[in-house]
Design a protein around this nucleic acid. Sequence first.
DNA 1: CGTTGTGAAATGATTCACAGCT
DNA 2: AGCTGTGAATCATTTCACAACG
Lengths: 220, 220
Amino acid sequence: MPIKPKIPRPTVKRLSLYLRHLESLAALDQPTISSKQLGAALSLTDAQVRKDLAYFGQFGHPGVGYRVDDLIGQLRKIFGTDKMWNAAIIGAGNIGRALLAYDRFGQKNFEIVAVFDNDPNVMGTVIENLKVKPMKDLAKLIREREVKLGIIAVPGEAAQDVADQLINAGVLGILNFAPVRLDVHDAVSVNSVDFSVALEQLAFQVSLGVVGSLDEDRTP
Amino acid sequence: MPIKPKIPRPTVKRLSLYLRHLESLAALDQPTISSKQLGAALSLTDAQVRKDLAYFGQFGHPGVGYRVDDLIGQLRKIFGTDKMWNAAIIGAGNIGRALLAYDRFGQKNFEIVAVFDNDPNVMGTVIENLKVKPMKDLAKLIREREVKLGIIAVPGEAAQDVADQLINAGVLGILNFAPVRLDVHDAVSVNSVDFSVALEQLAFQVSLGVVGSLDEDRTP
DNA sequence: CGTTGTGAAATGATTCACAGCT
DNA sequence: AGCTGTGAATCATTTCACAACG
């Protein structure tokens, strides 16, 4: 009985994209989808899709494919997003406000339950039905509201300090929009999004004359 | 004489992070850095760093390391960001406005020279010194201002149509913030950022009990 | 010395190909 | 027929280990 099959990193990235595609399909009439169809939608081989899913169980039906609704449910369970996750945003600047207004988080079972900022100009103001709280209340509110994920949207200089506070307050994961590497000495999981890095990598691909998506494996 | 050494995809991701770290170092006094130091800063091995850089040339000095200023210059040349790139943002909603205010693009030699939106409420308004233009002017302005990169910050339903217009107008690369896969039939390079996908992957890591950064190779 | 650049070895990920199920 | 799940083969990436250099 295998306890930990060890999941390849690229597989995890693709699972999110499978789920996104399936959710866009669920509204439609299509009740099942084959690994070939799902792969074609993301420019992947059918074998790749099957292998990725097989790491987590046997979800398909030979001769039929995967039942869309069922697979969506399975993927949500894999991601842990079958249950609601409370999250907090730190930094009510432009990025923080864009994230607060981002309605897709709710559809994915993430709820933003608190926003923090130390700027006296925004502290106390209400954004998207949430009152911006001062940083000194962070630990208390994170614990009270059982916030599991922290979203860092502060300038680079402040990011490490905020990360430390979040870890101390007991969050389990950090989504980091600040352009710095966070040192979390293995206390939590971190995922980072850096807009400049994203543009820079696009520029690199253009300079190389490579065409297509960066997530895919096309080097023709 | 090798013409195209074929660059591993993961290498490209790391190069951006090397550059970011070096730039944060340049202000400081440190004139050189060894592959060991640079690796330690990003939790990578020294061999990894050397191999990544060696794909592009011989930048180091045995017994000394890499001269920081020199390496920054080399990396910028590799990314093509030693020259200025004109970019346009399509969509003046929350994400578009956050990107317009993002001052790091300028430091990386990217200049946002146009913003487009079809909403009558924002069309014509001025954001960060740029007047929001209607979509019908897109092709003309992209060509006039020699815009090479398009940044899509519109809702998912509109993204493919915008991508088609950008390609028609002659952009070379697209940075996509809409939560859909763009079909660009190999006309341009695409890089996508999906906030929900980013959070979902963080949730997955947390559920698995994995700790540390998603960019790194720690599965302890 | 300390550190780079690089073949060779080891590890990791993808594709192939096919038995077996519906 | 059509399609999944999976071991085996291939391909890609990382790490090792060391000669060569300042």
